[in-house]
Design a protein around this nucleic acid. Structure first.
Length: 423
RNA sequence: GGAGGGUUGCCCGGAAUUGGUAACGGACCUGUCUUGAAAACAGGCGCGCUCUGCGCAUGCGAGUUCGAGUCUCGCACCCUCCGCCA
């Protein structure tokens, strides 16, 4: 959420930002509504002031006649206040709904564009492997090695259901083990966080109201989170932190649930797009400074890069264009790993910063060195997401006989150098 | 699921006659003093507005009332006990 004062003072910037993100929002309407809100607020407040004054007089009024007459007067005023206040409430409701739809302003360095096809490559790492044999996709590879069971996954869990088993399960655990070792050397607070959450954290992080169709909802009006970001960000909801608490950097594990409502035709088989998976996420709260946000954003991105490098997986980084950036994000990098069977890079990490967009919604402040209360800044980036990285990894490490070499750093966790049929 | 007790200011503690309009203390910030710090003293210390002023804010929402921390109803969370349970 943006500050209404900022919106009023920088109307053109906000409108241009929404346009760059290809988000349709009527800022003029919001400002007109805000005029009305301020006007009604003034009316109601003046009436309340009068009520407070006379009510105070009543409490000390000795003359019974005067007292009765003042009470009668206040009875009338009370009705008027209620009437005007109802009007104000209606306006306020509409105002709040509209405020939640106003997108954060994207950074100047964010390229113009409509969809992920317009994202701009900014870095390439590693050599795309050239295979001198006919390669298999991760589904074939993993099914042949009994690492995954998609048929029974579908039988039990429905569309996009899957079981990881044998070396499939071992490999995922190995990656998680290595991720812990790797990230906890970088001064993160380890956390295991809930995914079944109240509505407020989703509104606070910007997943509601817009993304409702992509969330699973329970009969108790709770929602299942698609990322640990939602819980970790909300951990400090409605709290005031000390400046010395910042930056707060979490390395957070959680199950992730995604309805994938808009992508029914895409990636219908395999482990690329599933409804349920486990993920480690990097989530950060820092001081309210653009420079710090940018510095930590680069740092979080670099962490994930180095992790992929340790695994020996080729990747590139794109800076997401305006149309491929979420409501609250100022700037976003996607890290995309090389997927041999598709002959292209596929997203494995998403790294963003938000300035105070999320913290304003969540009410997360800190007291700076001058004693002023400020909304903190927030950022997040994938550390490692379960099945998708498995798919990428097995494809890149496949051998002519269908076996899979285990990357060096994972061997002590998998317990072998190579995954073959014999095992 | 059942019974009882509880929730007060950015933070911590903690008062408020029969309902009369949120004391006070600590912490924290700024200033004075000091070589510096401590102490002391002064001010500040939730949000909003058209800001010498006014409004809002006692877990959340609704109600009664001229007036609600206080009374009524619903909800959330915490504590104690019972039941169930990996």
């Amino acid at each position: 959420m943006l500050d209404i004062k900022f919106i009023r003072d920088n109307k053109d910037i906000v409108i241009a930002g929404a346009k760059k993100k290809h988000i349709d929002v009527d800022i003029e309407k919001l400002i007109t509504l805000d005029d009305k809100r301020r006007e009604l607020l003034k009316v109601v407040e003046d009436m309340r002031a009068k009520q407070n004054t006379i009510t105070k007089e009543i409490s000390t009024e000795q003359n019974q006649e005067m007292r009765a007459s003042k009470i009668a007067e206040m009875q009338k005023l009370k009705e008027q206040i209620q009437k005007e206040n109802d009007k104000l409430k209606d306006v306020l409701k509409e105002w709040q709904q509209l405020m939640l739809l106003v997108p954060n302003v994207p950074d100047i360095s964010v390229p113009e564009g409509e969809s992920d096809e317009d994202n701009v490559e900014v870095k390439v790492w590693g050599d795309v492997p050239s295979f001198d044999f006919e390669i298999k996709d991760h589904i074939t590879l993993m099914q042949n090695l009994d690492m995954v069971d998609l048929e029974r996954g579908t039988k039990v869990a429905g569309f996009r259901g899957y079981f990881l088993k044998n070396d499939g399960a071992m490999l995922e655990w190995a990656i998680f083990h290595f991720a812990q070792e790797f990230f906890l050397q970088r001064n993160f607070t380890p956390m295991i966080v809930p995914s079944l959450l109240n509505k407020e954290p989703f509104i606070g992080t910007g997943y509601l109201p817009q993304e409702e169709e992509n969330l699973y909802k329970t009969q108790d009006d709770k929602y299942l989170a698609g990322t640990a970001e939602v819980a970790v960000m909300s951990y400090f909801m409605d709290e005031t932190l000390k400046e010395s608490d910042l930056p707060f950097k979490a390395f957070a594990f959680s199950p992730c649930f995604r309805r994938e409502a808009g992508s029914h035709g895409k990636d219908t088989k395999g482990l690329i797009r599933v409804h349920e998976f486990f993920k480690y996420e990097q989530v950060v709260l820092c001081e309210a400074s653009h420079e710090t946000s940018v510095r930590i954003h680069e740092e979080l991105t670099k962490n994930s890069e180095e992790f992929l490098q340790a695994l020996g997986i080729p990747y590139h980084i794109v800076v997401n264009c305006g149309g491929d950036i979420g409501l609250g994000q100022v700037k976003k990098y996607d890290i995309e790993a090389w997927m041999p069977s598709q002959n292209k890079y596929r997203e494995t990490h998403s790294s963003s910063y938000f300035h105070d967009f999320q913290t304003r919604r969540l009410g997360i402040k800190y007291k700076d060195s001058n004693g002023n209360l400020r909304y903190a800044h927030s950022l997040n980036n994938t550390a490692i997401a379960g099945p998708r990285i498995l798919a990428v990894l097995v494809e890149n490490y496949q051998q002519p006989d269908g076996s899979i070499i285990v990357p060096e750093v994972l061997r002590k966790y998998v317990g072998k150098e190579k995954i073959t049929k014999e095992t």
